[in-house]
Design a protein around this nucleic acid. Structure first.
Lengths: 342, 342
DNA sequence: GGTTTTTTGATGTACGTTAGTCAAGAATTC
DNA sequence: GAATTCTTGACTAACGTACATCAAAAAACC
């Protein structure tokens, strides 16, 4: 009832262990007919190589590199911290993690870093991608060098990256709209949108999803054009204060980027009556406090720790050439109210 | 820079491999002073035993048993299916899974099954617990026999189970209230609660959390006493129809158990105007359809696949006597609207 | 046919651990 | 001080796989 081993395969195929080994590891010097006999035996027995024993034998160490944007952003700081925290755990699974940071929103710098990383010949790379042609090329070159690439948090499609690990941002935007629309279903007025930057793919996607659902399901609410807060609290505060000054019928706010501290301050100073319903992104000290004191109603969140673990998991499978469910990588967006704060 | 091995420990402690092994595996015949020397060397080097190599050597197979309630409940059917699906995967990690099913809501039968399972001497047991003194005793006896026990979906505190894997049901109830209250914030009227059975701990907890928040935050809404639908669609349909007949001001419904098909039918036949806001539990074919056609507004869900994987993960760690974060096991409750259905 | 080349088998070592045996050495007992 | 017990070290085999070497067998070539 135990798992079949190479010995069993050798026996069934009526060949020696050496031959099974040659077939298994793609070494040459095996006649096609013999190779097929061995393959048939493996299929018949349902043989699967014991990866742990295999790794033990080859002293395999998975070299994985993370390239992250630096900057004061508390979300990215958490990310970096989480990667560091996983380094300890990963060592147990023979994964050796290295990290480099690059300036945010700078495609050129990111591409340069990826080229540098390629020289260190890692087995896999995890990158928070900036959407840029040069970055796309750098990812493509990594792939060409046999290095597996996974995008994290912000995707880079058609770059050859094997998987994206993060939330579905269009869906997150739709969710925000579904919540905010229902919160405001019996009200008339405007909905304000505060974005970070429309250069970030995840922000663009959130806005897209949000507007889709708002238009389709909650047409009685009037969408204002997005304010670009660049994830900076002061700028967000200024923009929102201006908006409150210009309109007294803002009944809902969707904050899809950073700088929530500024939004709080603007609300505290001059929120209209009734207090607008607010949906924001990322559970941080600011947004948590805002939930608790009732300033925000809901916060959409991605569990970064889970994403990092998930990325490492998928990467290991890719490197082992094990099958990976193509749907893997999408993390469910979490929704927090003041009532289910962890 | 590689991980230290027993050889390194032996060298540093200036003892033989045999002695290190004796200390490591708690065999006797080692003087206290020597043992301490070895321990010091392990600490100094940061030695951690390579579990994969260790398991390979001892041909360890983790025997894990699942005891699940049977019955027509689609939630439990999914659970059983998921356990079966994990069996294949688990085999790769040397985990051998067995499953038994027992009649639902029957503490005596469950306890009997656990006693039977104890005879098969598994390393660990995962059980969907019915809250019952006899079950508590059976779990306690398993623990006494050195068998690790984890409760799944429905907890059984003070039974000695090592962990509970599932959602925080009080928090789920609070979340439901937070959503429903905000959905109905500009309305006046009654809120109906449909439960499965108040004999199930998870249902009791959901109701508790729901009422907590409703009373505290949304006192303008009037809570009706819970209807016990026993997770049966027909009964739920009857109860809700009666409720609609008796009251024309039901503005919100919280369905915290099964039988959502019945709720849908009752709503279709005689929902008041405006259509009540509905929050239900578990994403099934019924609740998904109800979200899509707008009958339900939100569905709280627990990802069973994740729970099963999580339970196996924790169990493996427990059996290896590895440290397990006491907070592990709590799975975030997912929230689905029609806008973020997977 | 004999020779060369290709294919196959036998054998050994290693990975880091478990687990055992046996004998030498040290400490303890009377 | 001798007999006894306890402690320690040296050695071996095993887990399932990888990888290398050498010899034997089989196929291909001229």
């Amino acid at each position: 009832m135990l798992r079949p081993t190479v010995h069993d395969v050798a026996h069934v195929a009526n060949v020696s262990l050496s031959t099974v080994d040659r077939v298994l590891n793609g070494r040459d010097g095996v006649r096609a007919a013999t190779r097929e006999r061995v393959r048939a035996a493996m299929r018949e027995l349902g043989y699967e190589r014991d990866i742990m024993a295999a790794n033990l034998s080859r002293k395999r160490v998975y070299k994985v590199h993370f390239t992250l944007p630096e900057g004061p952003n508390s979300f990215m700081r958490n990310l970096a911290e989480e990667v560091r925290a996983q380094t300890r755990h990963a060592a147990r699974a023979r994964i050796e993690i290295s990290v480099s940071t690059v300036p945010p929103f700078d495609g050129r710098a990111l591409a340069a870093d990826l080229r540098r990383v390629r020289e260190t010949a890692p087995d896999g790379v995890v990158v928070v991608a900036t959407d840029d042609a040069e970055v796309r090329q750098a990812v493509f070159d990594l792939r060409a060098a046999g290095i597996e690439v996974i995008t994290l948090v912000s995707d880079l499609p058609t770059s050859g990256r094997a998987h994206f690990v993060g939330i579905d941002n269009v869906s997150a935007g739709r969710t925000a709209a579904g919540l905010l629309g229902r919160f405001c279903q019996d009200r008339q007025g405007r909905i304000a949108i505060v974005a970070g930057s429309m250069l970030l793919r995840d922000h663009v996607e959130r806005r897209l999803g949000f507007e889709q659902v708002m238009h389709a399901e909650f047409a009685h609410l009037q969408l204002m054009p997005p304010l670009e807060g660049r994830d900076e609290a002061d700028r967000v505060e200024q923009l929102m204060s201006d908006a409150f000054g210009a309109h007294d019928d803002i009944v809902g706010i969707y904050s899809l980027g950073g700088g929530n501290g500024g939004l709080r301050r603007a609300l505290g100073r001059m929120a209209p009556t009734p207090w607008p319903m607010v949906v924001a992104h990322e559970l941080t000290a600011q947004s948590r406090a805002a939930l608790q004191d009732g300033a925000f109603d809901a916060v959409l969140h991605q569990d970064i720790a889970r994403e990092v673990r998930h990325a490492l998991d998928i990467l290991r499978k890719l490197i082992d050439a094990a099958p990976v469910d193509p749907g893997a990588g999408l993390i469910q967006t979490e929704i927090f109210l003041r009532d289910n704060l962890p």
